[in-house]
Write a protein that binds this DNA or RNA. Structure first.
Length: 229
DNA sequence: TAGGCCATCTGGTCCT
DNA sequence: AGGACCAGATGGCCTA
């Protein structure tokens, strides 16, 4: 989203009231009886008897101070989310080559002017894709270790030039249970054939039914060089 | 028009 | 006390 075009942010920068008359903030964000004062200085917290949480009386803030504090908190949270999005974009940038893009293009979704056509990966797609890619790399590493071990034994060589790290194993494969196959693919199965991401629209492949990842299932295509040059 | 995705606000909780 | 983190709520935008 274009930050500069966001009315709320504009209001923030212009110190417009978030709620109440003249506010650009939607009224639904300001429920009936909205009272910033009561929010920043809440009445005795639910579940805490006799205000056990704070023994010190909260300093009473003037409405202006409350607004200023709220603006400050909002700004911090906005910054935090923007930093998170920057990191997500960096990850997305790395993962995009490994995801096939649908035919449809979205100008607003492709936030980069020179970005290739196609929809950009959603956040959850980026994360799931990255996770599976990491697992795939781990599987490849394991297989490579195995092959190197076979070669070493076949040649009657102990370890030779083979890096110890490769032979010692210890790749931190994730073994925690997950709801869907995409979120917990069998690493070895994933290593058997190169995985290819497909889209439901393009390939007709079934979407994952778990409702969490909302991504197409892995589909194995014809073997391709595992380490293309 | 429904659903997906997203940004933002907000209050609560935990940590330093 | 202040900041970081989190989750729920909400509205906007876009696509099928």
């Amino acid at each position: 989203m274009n930050v500069l075009s966001n009315p709320v942010i504009r209001a923030q920068e212009q110190s417009l009231p978030l709620c109440g008359p003249g506010s650009v903030q939607d009224l639904t964000h300001c429920p009936p009886g909205f009272n910033l004062s009561s929010r920043l200085n809440p009445a005795p917290l639910i579940g805490l008897q006799n205000g056990q949480r704070s023994t010190k009386p909260q300093r009473e803030l003037s409405p202006e101070e409350q607004q200023e504090l709220r603006r400050k908190i909002n700004s911090r949270e906005r910054k935090r989310m923007q930093d998170l999005n920057i990191a997500m974009d960096a990850l997305r940038e790395v993962m995009v080559p490994y995801a096939s893009s649908p035919a449809s293009a979205s100008s607003s979704q492709s936030h980069q002017p020179g970005a290739p056509p196609g929809r950009r990966l959603s956040k959850i797609s980026t994360l799931v894709l990255a996770r599976n890619y990491i697992l795939l790399l781990g599987s490849s590493l394991q297989e490579m270790r195995r092959l190197l071990g076979e070669v070493s034994v076949g040649m009657g060589v102990n370890t030779g030039p083979v890096p110890r790290l490769l032979l010692t194993g210890g790749w931190p494969l994730i073994s925690s249970p997950a709801k869907c196959s995409l979120l917990s693919p069998d690493p070895m199965e994933a290593s058997l054939a190169p995985a290819q991401w497909s889209t439901a629209g393009a390939s007709g492949g079934p979407l994952c039914p778990c409702g969490v990842c909302r991504l197409p299932r892995f589909s194995h295509s014809t073997p391709a060089p595992r380490f293309p040059k």
